[in-house]
């Protein structure tokens, strides 16, 4: 799958990563994701899902020189290296697991404006983007509010607005539904459905994966265990059992 005619949105060529403690977090992960695809990454806690996502955004140590042998992550056919970090991050919107890690400004408006301001846009343009993104996540009136006064679901959506304001080509989401009540989860699902770009979603919420993503990757012990259509992979009881997962109810009733 390494050389395809259309440029892949994301390509992992044997991604391997060890933490400084020596623990292997990722072991020779290979896959390619086409533009516009929505892919779920599932697996038990500690399987390396978050580490995988971090690599997509260059948040972990990476080679400083770009040679085809050392670079393991390619975004839009470009190898992720130190020199290209800014370009890579510009294309990828990263949603962190805990919204409080990502909302660091005193008001919602300033937080959503953070990305566009760092991209060097002028004030008028920034304001337009802030308003658009807040509308896109259904919180147009929340600009002047303090994030501390919002519910978890609202904070998650503000985070997403902050990411969307950077106008990314693809979204990378780490546990987007954790701590959300059913209504907030539904709202998030609708927002993500409307986003046209590529999406990589690490989640424990298999129903969420089933509803949103046509394709799923199963990760366990740092290794890619399965890669295929979501209804097929998640319906395999042996595979699910082996990697600490469960076949979702919808797929059980044959």
């Amino acid at each position: 799958m390494t050389s395809l005619p259309i440029p892949m949105a994301i390509e992992l060529r044997g991604l391997t990563f060890r933490y400084p403690t020596g623990r292997v977090a990722l072991d020779d992960v290979r896959c390619a994701i086409a533009p516009g695809e929505r892919v779920a990454v599932v697996g038990p806690s500690g399987a390396g899902k978050s580490t995988l996502l971090m690599h997509l955004n260059g948040l972990l140590p990476m080679p400083s020189v770009a040679t085809d042998d050392t670079v393991q992550v390619f975004i839009q056919s470009l190898g992720v290296t130190k020199g290209r970090l800014r370009d890579v991050r510009r294309q990828i919107g990263f949603l962190f697991q805990d919204p409080d890690d990502q909302l660091f400004c005193p008001t919602v408006r300033e937080d959503v404006a953070f990305g566009p301001l760092n991209l060097g846009l002028d004030q008028a343009e920034v304001l337009v983007r802030v308003d658009q993104s807040l509308i896109a996540v259904g919180l147009p009136e929340h600009g002047p509010r303090n994030p501390a006064q919002l519910s978890t679901g609202e904070r998650k959506r503000v985070c997403l607005a902050g990411v969307l304001a950077c106008d990314p080509v693809m979204l990378v989401l780490d546990e987007p539904t954790s701590n959300l009540d059913p209504r907030a989860r539904r709202q998030l699902l609708e927002i993500l459905r409307r986003f046209p770009g590529t999406q990589i979603i690490a989640t424990h919420d298999l129903d969420f994966a089933l509803e949103l993503c046509p394709r799923v990757l199963v990760l366990d012990g740092g290794k890619l265990q399965a890669d295929g259509p979501v209804e097929q992979v998640l319906a395999n009881p042996n595979l699910m059992e082996r990697h600490g997962l469960e076949v979702p109810w919808r797929l059980r009733a044959v």
């Binding site: 948040l59 991050r89 990828i92 408006r109 300033e110 953070f114 301001l117």
Partner: peptide, 25 residues
């Protein structure tokens, strides 16, 4: 983690702010 979240949105170490009219609400 927050530092990483800032980096992910283009943070380069020099703060930029919304203009005064914009932040007034």
């Amino acid at each position: 983690r927050t530092h990483q979240a800032m980096l992910a949105r283009g943070w380069d170490g020099s703060p930029k702010f919304l203009g005064t009219e914009a932040r007034k609400g």
